[in-house]
């Protein structure tokens, strides 16, 4: 793991005040300490006698160590370096009794958190990056969809895409219907018609823990309707998908997301990304981005 540098320290209050997951609770055995970084600051966390905790370790420019606020929800230990809101954003499906929730994996990627968010919001790459799973040529067209900001969250609705194998439960190609949601700047979710029960939707989220401007841990949260596959099978499917995204993310120049609308070339299919970049601009985010 790269050393954090002074310049990775976050001065952006919007980003400092968010909750970030540090570790899946299932991967934090009682008494063990997990060392990691958040926004350039070395931090550690653990569960001691059933109580989750997190603290800073000595960091450049931030002397001393100190206890950090913690929340355990959705199966993760969350913390914040700033003054966070009372709770993490709502995922109501989490409490539905017939669902299975799990962390499918926590992947370290050499990219910025907003680049990872944008990749997750993007359907156009399915046939090229997730060939045979989430897309396949010649089904490349991205139909128009709607994007709006509701109570500070971005929602993209009426998204659809042809998928040869949409999930571990899929048995054939289908036109998958998606809803995307960006509940906080560095967290992104999708709701997708379940191959098991078309009336209900699987929830898949990518919860980013920005270690630095250009390095993240991507925690892949799942809340699914699937009584067939084992945890291992479900995780394997997600890991295949993420392993396909990683080399793309690590080959984007620049690694930080450019917020100037002229820096790259969006098309209609990138409607969500256009709104996301504008939203970050309006929030004044300056972490993991190339400011406009």
């Amino acid at each position: 793991m790269e050393q954090s540098t002074e310049s990775d320290i976050c001065t952006d209050p919007v980003i400092r005040d968010q909750w970030y997951p540090l570790r899946a609770l299932a991967e934090l055995p009682e008494g063990a300490t997990h060392h990691t970084r958040l926004l350039g600051v070395p931090v550690s966390c653990g569960v001691t006698r059933g109580r989750p905790w997190a603290r800073t370790e000595s960091a450049p420019g931030d002397g001393g160590t100190g206890a950090l606020p913690v929340i355990d929800t959705y199966g993760y230990l969350w913390t914040s370096l700033g003054e966070p809101p009372p709770g993490v954003f709502e995922i109501p499906e989490y409490t539905e009794p017939d669902r299975r929730s799990m962390n499918a994996g926590s992947f370290i990627v050499a990219t910025s958190a907003p680049r990872a968010v944008e990749n997750f919001l993007d359907m156009g790459h399915f046939p090229y990056v997730h060939t045979g799973y989430l897309g396949i040529e010649p089904h490349t067209e991205v139909n128009p969809y709607d994007v709006e900001i509701i109570d500070g969250e971005i929602w993209a609705t009426r998204c659809e895409f042809f998928q040869p194998m949409a999930a571990a439960t899929a048995t054939g190609g289908q036109m998958s219907k998606y809803t995307y949601r960006v509940p906080s700047p560095f967290a992104v979710m999708l709701y997708k018609s379940s191959p098991v029960d078309p009336e209900r939707r699987d929830v898949i989220a990518l919860l980013l823990q920005p270690m630095g401007h250009e390095q993240v841990v991507a925690h892949n949260f799942l809340c699914l309707l699937d009584d067939v596959n084992s945890d291992a099978e479900i995780k394997r499917f997600q890991q295949i998908i993420f392993a396909q995204d990683k080399p793309i993310l690590e080959n984007q120049i620049p690694r930080r997301l450019p917020l100037d609308p002229r820096a790259e070339t969006p098309i209609r299919a990138d409607h969500t990304s256009i709104v996301y970049r504008r939203h970050l601009r309006e929030l004044g985010v300056n972490y993991g981005v190339v400011p406009a």
Partner: peptide
């Protein structure tokens, strides 16, 4: 230039 104008991915891949 080794950068796709769309989303910046290296054209060398």
């Amino acid at each position: 230039e080794n950068r796709c104008l769309h989303r910046g991915v290296r054209l060398s891949i």
